[in-house]
């Protein structure tokens, strides 16, 4: 058992093993960070001299700027819509029995196993059939479909941890269902709602494969712009951008961990 108090040889081997695996997990981030400061335009390791110039280029490159703003638009819409749709459905799942309940649940959770390129291709064909263009609504719909399972999961776990007797107590005190929802249920769900929204936002901002299918030059998001860049150039600009990505994401996750307890959100902590 790797982490018992007695440090047996088995335990030490376990600790070492975990350390090596975590090293594997973090290696690319470390390597990409060093590369980002490489002064030369050729991808080589280790760098001969260091500079910040690739960060400057990453931040000023037109496609990245456009992709960043596109991404923000798509993410803001998609995560907010997914939050509203997902919390409502989580509430219904948790409280009520209704016809087609399990079918609807299965369909909405299926994007967890349906390949993203399949969903992207399907929406692309659908838009062609309906002769609607590849505008923002199509990209947003794709993102809502893809991040909804995560919102659903997050809100549903919060609902399970919510003591149902609080709602009963409120209604016994004369509160109408609407009043119970807005004064008791939703306020107590705030951590789950915020973390669900945050999850949705991060995943949406990073979504690539489906977006590649449903976006065009005008609606392409940052990951698509990055993909197109890496196919054309081999300089460390993307490394610099990746570093910014990694720092911002790790920061957001640390904050989420501080405020909400990441373990609870991900359901890896026993209650």
């Amino acid at each position: 058992m790797p982490f018992s108090m007695r440090k047996s040889p088995l335990a030490l081997a376990g600790i070492l093993l975990v350390a090596i695996i975590l090293g594997f997990v973090m290696l690319p981030a470390i390597v990409v960070t060093i590369t980002a400061f490489n002064d030369k335009a050729i991808l080589a390791f280790p760098p001969q001299s260091y500079s910040w110039r690739w960060f400057a280029r990453a931040l000023s490159y037109g496609d990245f700027q456009k992709g960043f703003w596109n991404g923000l638009i798509v993410t803001a819409w998609a995560s907010t819509i997914a939050l509203i749709v997902g919390s409502g459905f989580a509430l219904a799942l948790h409280r009520y029995a209704f016809s087609l309940k399990s079918t609807l649940e299965a369909v909405l959770l299926s994007p967890l196993v349906i390949p993203h390129f399949t969903i992207g291709l399907g929406l692309l064909i659908l838009s062609a059939q309906l002769t609607v263009g590849r505008g923002f609504p199509l990209v947003v719909l794709a993102h809502v479909i893809l991040v909804l399972p995560f919102v659903l999961r997050s809100v549903f776990i919060s609902l399970q941890n919510l003591d149902g007797r609080l709602e009963l107590a409120a209604s016994s005190l004369g509160a109408s269902p609407r009043r119970v929802l807005f004064t008791v249920t939703l306020p107590l769900l705030v951590p789950g709602l915020v973390s669900g929204w945050l999850f949705a936002a991060i995943l949406s901002f990073n979504e690539f494969t489906a977006t590649l299918f449903v976006s065009n030059q005008a609606t392409q998001t940052l990951p698509v712009a990055m993909y197109n860049y890496v196919r054309e150039y081999a300089d460390p600009t993307l490394a610099a951008l990746s570093v910014i990505y990694i720092v911002v994401t790790a920061l957001l996750l640390t904050l989420a961990n501080l405020f909400f307890g990441l373990g609870k959100i991900l359901n890896v902590d026993a209650h």
Binding site: L168, S171, S172, L173, G174, S176, P177, V180
Partner: peptide, 11 residues
Amino acid sequence: PAHKREIGIVF
């Protein structure tokens, strides 16, 4: 419905 019954409850 419960909210119109005017009962007090201690859980």
